[in-house]
């Protein structure tokens, strides 16, 4: 009887998640056209196979796209690594604080994420531009004579990315650290281990699934990020998200944009599967990284 209740969400997901990805794959082998929409269906009843592998070939042949992919992966890796480095001490701090402070501290980490990320990027634009706070501080301290070009650089982009994604990294880490069994650490300390040895040989290994989940939770969306590089990064730095946006909105090359999306999905399929396995393992144990 209640099986029928499964139908609405299942049909919804088939129509709005499965079908779109399938259509993406079809458009990626279509020929572009000047019409509306700007592609020709690759398979028609009258003419048979009309598709082309040209968009996919172009992706592999043009070093521009390969470059964009490598750059995106590098930026995503750097963002995730920086987030993890900042988030780990924060999560430890939350887990080590008294129980009644844990919820408000977690809320303090979450609240910026709910502030709206565009205004936060706006704040970074205001802080990093030539007459902005950072440059005024540097000049006031006599460290630099004139304003440094800080905005529209890779560094500005990374700062913006880390600022946007940091809450995503703190929460899974705080969750594993809060749920860990303190008795193991106490036992190690009773047996004569110094605090550093306890941390390195007990706390750190116990928190690894959470750390990996935190890394992937940042890495996966960061690899396809569009808005932050567009607003803070150097204009010439082409990342996959931007390349896709430009092909779609400016060049109106839908097949190529679809091919880029498909390629991004293919590149990320391994981290995505790894992340879902971690989640499932966590649920099975009842102490998931999420």
């Amino acid at each position: 009887m209640r099986r029928w209740l499964l139908l609405p969400p299942f049909l919804w997901l088939l129509l709005l998640v499965a079908a779109p990805v399938a259509i993406l794959a079809v458009i990626a082998v279509s020929e572009g056209s000047a019409g509306v929409p700007p592609f020709r269906p690759p398979l028609s009843l009258a003419e048979g196979w009309q598709g082309t592998l040209e968009p996919l070939r172009l992706l592999l042949a043009d070093v521009f796209y390969l470059d964009a992919f490598l750059r995106s992966l590098l930026v995503a890796f750097a963002t995730a690594a920086l987030c993890l480095a900042l988030a780990y001490p924060m999560a430890l701090g939350i887990a080590a604080s008294p129980a009644r402070w844990q919820m408000p501290l977690a809320a303090l980490v979450l609240l910026p994420f709910w502030t709206g990320f565009l205004p936060r990027l706006g704040a970074w634009i205001g802080l990093l531009r030539d007459g902005g706070w950072v440059n005024r501080l540097l000049q006031g301290a006599g460290l630099t004579a004139g304003p440094l070009p800080l905005l529209y650089t890779d560094a500005a982009m990374l700062v913006g990315m880390v600022h946007a994604y940091l809450p995503f990294a703190v929460l899974p880490l705080a969750t594993v650290l809060l749920r860990r069994d303190r008795a193991v650490e106490e036992a190690a300390a009773d047996l004569g281990a110094t605090p550093w040895v306890v941390f390195r040989s007990v706390t750190l290994p116990l928190s690894l699934p959470g750390a990996l989940a935190a890394f992937l939770l940042v890495f996966i969306p960061a690899a396809g990020e569009f808005v932050i590089p567009e607003l803070l990064g150097p204009p010439e730095a082409m990342l996959v998200g931007r390349a896709l946006w430009v092909e779609f909105f400016q060049n109106r090359d839908w097949p190529l944009a679809a091919a880029l999306a498909l390629a991004l999905l293919l590149v990320l399929i391994l981290p995505i599967c790894l992340f879902q396995r971690l989640e499932d393992a966590g649920e099975a144990r009842g102490s998931g990284p999420s």
Binding site: P20, I23, L24, P221, G224, E225, A261
Partner: peptide, 16 residues
């Protein structure tokens, strides 16, 4: 939808 990059979700839904 939790793990797909935004640009992929956006483009694929538009095509649908």
């Amino acid at each position: 939808p939790l793990v797909l990059p935004e640009v992929v979700t956006g483009l694929s839904l538009l095509l649908l």
